[in-house]
């Protein structure tokens, strides 16, 4: 394939095709091999027999790059794959080190025990409630504020308020004063502690503001104003429909933040019925409290109990992580945009 032999990095790909095509066209006028000239995708003549020369060192570099990337991909994916495989395998084989790429001694015993456990269901349900409500509030509060801060009309006030927001990114009261405040507000042992205090993430606010500033043409506002729209109408009817990319990105950031939040549950929640998934996970995975899952049943040796506990751990990891890993590829196309905006204007 000529793509490979052209040693231009990929982002240059599209243009390189046409440049190559031009070379080919030049060749065609001087050389008699007119028959081999074809039109490329973009209609530019393209000679597939004509390549840029690739030297030996370039080949070596190429091979090294592919090798390195392959190693990196394996390093990243293998631990995850191993957990998945181990969760379906016979634990005796796993701890003997014989399970590597495919499940051995296929079993779903771990998952059965996981799904029987009431704590996990409660945690799961709590986390879903906190994440959905929390993300909804996050978006409802963040987006209008970001829009208001993106309007230049309010001039000096805007700068002051922006400073008020960004300052909190670098300076905070710290853990203890926050704890005492939440206590006074009655947020201890209260589900709203997961939702209210984190209602605005300044970082996401700034990302959204930069998006509104740079990606929505000012002419749009002038046109809307001429047609009689107020700021509210303009925001609801024009800005929001045009901002699906940024809503997806910061929505995902917020959602992942809520889903993976362990800190809040650790500090502010004492009642096990309110614990989110991550805190339940902590007690199962790290504090080794798997007994309630039936490992304590009589007649088993220590080793067997340990193996059942391991089986449960693998299952729990998969069950708790799966929802995010399923959502994220669908939103991936928006990431580059969102992260880049944040970076440019951060």
């Amino acid at each position: 394939m000529s793509m490979k032999t052209r040693n231009v990095p990929s982002n240059a790909g599209a243009k390189a095709v046409s440049l190559n095509g031009l070379d080919a066209a030049k060749m065609a006028t001087t050389a008699p091999t007119i028959a081999s000239v074809k039109n490329g995708k973009d209609g530019v003549p393209f000679n597939k027999h004509y390549h840029l020369q690739k030297s030996v060192p370039d080949w070596i570099v190429d091979i090294v790059i592919w090798l390195l990337l392959a190693i990196i991909v394996v390093i990243v994916i293998y631990p995850l794959w191993f957990i998945l495989v181990a969760s379906f395998s016979d634990q005796r084989l796993v701890s003997a080190g014989r399970v590597s790429v495919w499940p051995l001694g296929f079993t779903t015993a771990g998952y059965q025990r996981v799904f029987q456990d009431q704590r996990i269901w409660t945690g799961y349900w709590n986390t879903i409630v906190y994440s959905v409500l929390g993300t909804a509030l996050n978006l409802v509060v963040t987006l209008p504020a970001a829009f208001a801060l993106s309007r230049r009309e309010v001039g000096k006030v805007r700068r002051v308020i922006l400073f008020l927001f960004t300052f909190t990114m670098y300076f905070s009261g710290g853990l203890i004063p926050s704890y005492l405040l939440y206590k006074q507000l009655g947020l201890l042992n209260n589900m709203w502690v997961f939702i209210l205090p984190g209602a605005v993430s300044v970082w996401n606010l700034i990302i959204a503001r930069s998006f509104f500033e740079t990606s929505i043409p000012e002419d749009m506002f002038d046109a809307a104003k001429l047609d009689g729209l107020s700021y509210g109408g303009y925001f609801m009817k024009i800005v929001i429909p045009l901002s699906s990319a940024i809503i997806a990105v910061i929505g995902l950031y917020y959602f992942v933040g809520h889903w993976n939040d362990y800190f809040t549950g650790l500090i502010y929640i004492r009642e096990s019925g309110l614990e989110p998934l991550q805190n339940v996970l902590q007690s199962i995975l790290l504090a080794n409290q798997t007994n309630q899952l039936g490992t304590g049943a009589g007649g088993q040796s220590m080793l067997q109990q340990q193996q059942i506990a391991d089986q449960i751990k693998y299952g729990v990891i998969i069950v708790s992580t799966l929802p995010l890993l399923i959502i994220y590829p669908f939103l991936q196309k928006y990431f580059d945009k969102g992260v880049m905006i944040g970076a440019v204007k951060g």
Binding site: V76, Y262, L281, Q282, L285, I317, S320, T321, L324
Partner: peptide, 11 residues
């Protein structure tokens, strides 16, 4: 390579 970013600290 993005994938591990979404895994929680506990896990």
């Amino acid at each position: 390579t993005y994938m591990p970013h979404f895994i929680s600290t506990v896990v």
